[in-house]
């Protein structure tokens, strides 16, 4: 099944991303070993020039990852018609054991690349590149993740077999099913709703505190905000599966987060997942950006950048909450009589 146009495009995207991040990581290793801003030698000048290429390469990798992530899910949904038992992307991704891990790692690489680019932007604002070692160490850590994602994706596509009977989303996201999908579907709707909107309210309050009062001593508010974004991402996904999805389908037993991306539901999934992903990517960057103010060359630029990023994250978070709320209010389903 490897000769499918979308699969070829996704493999090409994986190859380009791996090459870009690989090139960046090789350069990063040289930076970690030889970087010395006090040295005026030609080798140091070459390293300084090379940082521009690495930034461009990682930016390119992120853009390709973003498009490929959407295509990966979109294509999985479209290919559901070719597998017995599959009704949407959930079924296609379960044709073999590599689909779901490949998707999860792709999402991880996407967030890691966003974080790296935020750090890189901050670092490039300082005349002495104060974060250069940190950001290249991070790039070296991201590379194995990207390689694993590319490997899993290749394994997934190579092992796609049309004669395999897979399971549809109604079996995967059902309370009777063991596993995380089943657990989330079994979550009490009232509790899930409370956690979702409670989490969003707490996050927005923390964001307001951060923007108005600053990141606090030891940067704890900013770090907490970044951590809270990860928790909110998990709560958001849990909320979508356990309570928002049934409102979209107007069926208390249908919990699939992938069917939301289908045209018959007006592609509402993109309006839900898009802001949640944007909020998490921006929120993750807030902590490191605020931490930058401890460096003399970033003292003025860091507060401006972390505030901007926090506001972006809060805006996206609020949008996610509003879309979820609108779905619940407009739905014909009554879960709480």
């Amino acid at each position: 099944m490897i000769f499918q146009p979308a699969i070829l495009a996704l493999l090409l995207a994986s190859l380009l991303t791996t090459l870009a991040l690989g090139g960046g990581a090789v350069f990063g290793a040289r930076v970690l070993r030889h970087w010395d801003p006090t040295n005026g030698a030609a080798s140091q000048l070459r390293l300084e020039r090379g940082t521009y290429l690495t930034s461009t390469l990682v930016g390119f990798a992120l853009a390709v990852q973003g498009v490929a992530l959407v295509l990966f899910v979109f294509n999985a949904d479209r290919m559901a018609s070719q597998f017995v038992g599959a009704m949407c992307a959930a079924g296609t991704l379960r044709v073999n054991g590599f689909g779901m891990p490949a998707l999860t790692l792709r999402i991880g690489v996407f967030f890691a690349a966003c974080l790296w680019l935020a750090l890189d932007h901050l670092d490039s604002q300082g005349y002495d590149y104060p974060l250069i070692r940190v950001k290249y160490a991070l790039l070296l850590a991201v590379l194995p993740l990207a390689l694993a994602a590319a490997g899993l994706e290749l394994a997934y596509f190579l092992n796609l077999r049309a004669d395999v009977v897979t399971s549809c989303c109604s079996r995967l996201f059902t309370p009777a099913n063991a596993g995380i999908g089943g657990d989330l579907a079994a979550l009490d709707p009232a509790l899930a709703l409370g956690l979702l909107f409670g989490g969003l309210t707490l996050l927005l309050s923390l964001g307001t505190l951060l923007v108005t009062r600053g990141p606090g001593r030891g940067n704890w508010v900013a770090w907490t905000y970044s951590g809270a974004n990860v928790v909110t991402f998990v709560l958001g996904m849990a909320g979508v599966i356990s309570v928002v999805s049934p409102y979209v389908y107007e069926n208390p037993n249908h919990h699939c987060p992938f069917c939301l991306l289908k045209p018959e539901y007006g592609f509402i999934g993109y309006a839900l997942h898009g802001p949640l992903f944007a909020a998490t990517a921006a929120g993750l960057a807030v902590g490191p950006l605020a931490w930058g103010r401890h460096f003399p060359s970033l003292r003025t630029v860091s507060p401006r950048l972390f505030r901007r990023m926090a506001l972006l994250s809060m805006g996206a978070c609020a949008l996610f909450g509003m879309v979820s709320g609108a779905i619940i209010l407009r739905s014909g389903l009554v879960l709480f009589p």
């Binding site: 146009p5 979308a6 070829l8 495009a9 996704l10 090409l12 995207a13 390709v64 498009v67 490929a68 959407v70 295509l71 979109f74 294509n75 479209r78």
Partner: peptide
């Protein structure tokens, strides 16, 4: 088809 446009874009 959106998926085909994205595919072509990536390719």
């Amino acid at each position: 088809d959106g998926a085909r446009v994205l595919t072509l874009f990536l390719l």
